[in-house]
Design a protein around this nucleic acid. Sequence first.
DNA 1: CTGAAAGCGCTAACAG
DNA 2: CTGTTAGCGCTTTCAG
Lengths: 350, 350
Amino acid sequence: MTGDRDRPGQAAMPITISDVAAQAGVSKSTVSRYLNERYECMSLETRDRITAVIDATGYRPNALARGLKQKRTHTLAAIVANILNPFSTSVIRGIEDYCQQAGFNLILCNADDRPAKERQYVDILAAKQIDGLIINTTGKNNSLLASISQQMPVVLIDRKVPELQCDTVTVDCAAGVKAVIDHLIRQGHNKIAMLTLPYQAVSPRLERVHGYREALVANGIPYREDWLLETDATETAVEKTLAALFTRPDRPSALFGVNNLMTMAIVKVLKRLKIKVPQDVAVIGFDDWEWASQIEPPVTVVAQPAYDMGKKAAALLIGRLQGKNPGRKPAVVTYMPELVIRKSCGEGDC
Amino acid sequence: MTGDRDRPGQAAMPITISDVAAQAGVSKSTVSRYLNERYECMSLETRDRITAVIDATGYRPNALARGLKQKRTHTLAAIVANILNPFSTSVIRGIEDYCQQAGFNLILCNADDRPAKERQYVDILAAKQIDGLIINTTGKNNSLLASISQQMPVVLIDRKVPELQCDTVTVDCAAGVKAVIDHLIRQGHNKIAMLTLPYQAVSPRLERVHGYREALVANGIPYREDWLLETDATETAVEKTLAALFTRPDRPSALFGVNNLMTMAIVKVLKRLKIKVPQDVAVIGFDDWEWASQIEPPVTVVAQPAYDMGKKAAALLIGRLQGKNPGRKPAVVTYMPELVIRKSCGEGDC
DNA sequence: CTGAAAGCGCTAACAG
DNA sequence: CTGTTAGCGCTTTCAG
């Protein structure tokens, strides 16, 4: 007995394996075996006695003690860059579903696109002895990630870090951007501006910006530096950018948003500015989101299979933990994005 | 030394407090004191030596061992009913921000509105020895929650459970619904249907349904049972419900969605059915969401201060953990929702 | 100012 | 089939 149970005000002292052992009249080892389902090592009778005591007491093994001893916690973590981005939400659900059915716990963290916060989370998670990490990294903590990936498997999602030798799940950005530009051109646009968040160190943004430039020249359209607009994805920042862009005499006829957050901001700002889509300007975005099809006009996008990507990331991580194919070289899984044509670039193209 | 560091393939054995102690030429106790910032108990010189070793080795204390010994993990958890509901996302950010600045870690869990999953998470979290729990409960695990709340402080968010003696953060649903109905009536509607998810055991839904009925009779409008529609918030379910509703000769002129998910589904289905809002039918919802103002027509709602609610919940929990006001009676904090008039109930009312 | 020793709750040999 | 014995990595008396 651990005594002092059921004090009035607060925290009843939780019961331990020793309590269970004592009450069942067996040793801790036997209870431990029971907990680990090694039933073949005990008589049906002891087994039943232990079951009875556990049910009666509501005993719950202490995961800290167990983890400390076993050096595995059966817990994974996912750090997403920005939980406000619907892409992250979908990825999370994919990860979660897979973990659930594989019997792993998941700790979710939101780095809020801040490298400091990301670093802090990685430290905490490592301290908590998680078994593995899935991360959509800010790209500013590579050496930390390199060291952490010595201690546990890490899988990168969305954003690649070549120097990192980790399993990676991404999308073929170049192909996606090509689909965007080709579609725009088919719709008669050749004055295409792109709005992007700061893209140094963030691989998908970088690839999208490159892809934009290349797709342009591949179509014989000169690349204009002043139409590659780097801005935050907040409404105020985008409004400033667009206002400036639209007062200049020579304006683009189409706007391409580098990601969800950017496209969402563009749509909102255009609406506030009473700039009509697609009459005044076409809009297209990288990455789909729930309401893109519901607003007026519905927004054409290249969609990423976010849920599947999350699932795949979890599968790779857990696969490694379960040591199928030990010493496997880092896998890089690249999904193809898909053009979803709606109305924001004009109609009649299918 | 713990030996075997830097094996080629995988998991380098992490360094422990003993390693640090050995390398610094002091005892584990001293390093432990250092880790706990009890600097007054050691010479500046030893302190510096320890700092040096820790920096050099990248030592990270094992949180499992620490938690096991201290019986506190400095970790809180939040279980939300449905992470797809924008309400949850906002609540989470509020909780997260507060935890962050108070120096607590947060584990996020999504119960997916499934009592079994909720139960599983509660069990796991308790096993992990979290210090406290914030939960938007399904309402189907009350006895579990009762027992858990003996072991750690629990705060309920959004959904109340009277039998549970916990701090609670909610919204005044009756007031919100009254605002909804009053607004509808001012706009000339007296044929008001309400769509709700199954509401047994879920206090806000229950209160909203009651409020609907009461607000109706308070305004001299008879309550019609066949206009209180219980359905899932999926598009298919809502489509079926609305299709049936609209084929009957006597149809409502306004639709009230019990929560975000329901209102969102209503909006989408109406659009697909080509039923015009507000000309054919008015729409109003409980709880605001990001795109409500961006779709056509913008949807009128009563908004809940979700972010603040999350923050408050975290504050209550951490306050209790830090033992300010020990033995304080459970607090129930009720926020007032706010009517946000847009265009989906007709115009001209402000 | 510092160290030795015991122990948190559990698991894992090793004996029987 | 079952118990005894050592720890996992850390904190914490209690002595110096």
